[in-house]
Design a protein around this nucleic acid. Structure first.
Lengths: 197, 197, 197, 197
DNA sequence: GATGAATGAGCCTTCATTCAT
DNA sequence: AATGAATGAAGGCTCATTCAT
């Protein structure tokens, strides 16, 4: 019998190496050779486990999204079910989780965002992810605002999240999580205080 | 006797072809061969005019930024110098100019944003551009708000601009310019009405 | 305690899978991975039983030849020892045995024929086989014709057998066994009726 | 202006190198690297001129067939239009042209024959070629025999041509052209002398 | 006996760039 | 100014084989 349980070790190992490579040289420079070297395995193994480079990239994107989702769910699970405002801030906070704002993850996100435009599989993944943020926010906002307004504010918050994140990705000092949350909290409170602009 | 004035014709022609190629197949698929084919010239000519592919990409990025700047300047030039709020909205409007929100420009922007992370020249270009938006907004906001608050709101508006733009880039229907501006106008007014949240 | 008698099961199983693979995707596409998948075993096992891919191919070729020989011998064994003409037709008939003209065997033959040109082991096997057909035919023809003529006619029949077989291999409808035998029978009779052209 | 007329030089040069490589190491061993090395050019050039390895193989097969066709046509052009028997022998002779029976061409033919089984493009080429030999023979035989018999004999001759050629390909001494033609001439004459077997 | 994880060589192809014309 | 022939490096992928279990 061969070594067993290897997939459980190799797959995360290669996903990690992929993000690390993208962080260092960008998606364009993240060759199979470089990624496998970083993972300390041979290049052929990527085919063995992911059926090709594309499979690895797809899994990497899924992994990043899974982590994001996990961070949000964790925060929601420890937040009062009835405190909508707290839940919204929990969602926002999850999007600025320490893991998500690391250079490695930030660059990986951005690389995939650009790449997804011309790759149907990645595009769909990305799209689902974007809808989810909006949907999560809308559910909570509907408890506080009329439906139309809830949709409007959800889009505003989502835009702020992505915009702050995008601008932070470009900044060598990275994302200032505290400032990010303060900006969005401020936005939210102004929307709740006086819902008619 | 060589044809004169060819640079003035060839360079924009190739920049245009580059954006068109990025729109269709992404930056990764935009080979010199494809770009030159789209421009109806030979591949070798890119070296002739831009000293290599990198020169072409750099010029393309500069071109996109020039167009953005032009759109903003044009709007500012026809706006009352003393109406700060109108000037802020002019800046925002310039960022959602019809040209800027076209699929071609949107994808080119995003591709470069990702690429710039690992290319010092493009990175600097991108950074200057980001600072400029912030700076423009801050100058006007300082006429309406205390300095600290002006900086805070400028960052909020910049984040909304980029966030809406980023999310729109992913959306097959493109960016809804009207909704974008309404969201930002709403944000701005709430900040001005009662500057202390 | 190891399972006993496995070689007797595995070897024909893998030879069969090899022919099946060659039938479907050609010798060039018949990878160890594909063959073993078809046989429902792991790839490594081929080395175990045949010492490598080459050993498997060699055994496959031997197997095809053994089957051909068996078919001819069977027919000869039930044919009157003294009826030379009947024995020649028995040899011919054996070469167009239902098994031999199946797509799987036909393509395997042809693949090996081409491959043998650059593989000494397979070449020798193939050569022996070719000589055997000629030799069998000559032995019988010598009972009916002068030696020189017997050799001449044997070569003619062998050429017809291989030529009909080769052209049939290319034909999507396969080999028309009845027509094949009729053509060769006609050739033989004309040679016997009047041996001096 | 670049060097012109290169295609007319490079294409035959690469086709020649391909046959030479197949002759030496077989189709399986005829890598792009080997072929281009033999031609004294870089590997990339094959893409430039043939759009890939497959294009080169296709052109090589077409080239071999063109040569065969040329040899037959040349012989027919200098043969009495009304001497059907002579025309048949001219066709046969063309198939055993010195060029066609060279080791290089013989192995190339055989390699393609096997390969064509799993390549639609090559298969069609091969099929057309096979039909042409038969058709040429039948046209002439119909001047000498009743239609059904003409078809029967045409198939016999075609089988002899291919069979002799195939057996010769396996023979280290190559094809004995004189014996080949004598065998077929003998077959033809017996068929004409007494058309009812 | 049998597996499948793992390797490393080799293959075809793409690509930016150079250069003679 | 402009072409396209030509190159060489690099990329992703396939594959036969080895080996620990």
């Amino acid at each position: 019998m061969p070594k067993v349980g290897m997939p459980a070790i190799r797959r995360p190992q290669l996903v990690e190496a992929t993000m690390s490579a993208i962080d260092e040289v960008g998606l364009a420079g993240a060759s199979v050779a470089l990624i496998s070297r970083k993972a300390g395995v041979s290049a052929g193994i990527i085919n063995h486990y992911f059926g090709g480079k594309h499979g690895l990239l797809e899994e990497t994107m899924r992994s990043v999204m899974r982590e994001l989702s996990k961070g949000v769910q964790l925060r929601l699970s420890i937040t009062d079910q009835n405190d909508a405002k707290a839940r919204i801030l929990a969602i926002v906070d999850g999007n600025f989780d320490g893991n998500q704002v690391s250079s490695k993850v930030t660059k990986t996100w951005l690389a995939f965002w650009s790449h997804a435009m011309h790759d149907p599989t990645l595009f769909r993944l990305q799209h689902v992810n974007e809808r989810r943020l909006l949907s999560h926010l809308r559910v909570e906002l509907k408890k506080l605002l009329p439906p139309e307004r809830a949709q409007f504010v959800a889009q505003g918050i989502a835009a702020l999240v992505d915009g702050i994140w995008l601008r932070g990705a470009l900044n060598p000092q990275g994302i200032d999580t505290r400032a990010a949350i303060k900006t969005i909290e401020d936005y939210l409170e102004r929307q709740l205080h006086d819902s008619q602009p």
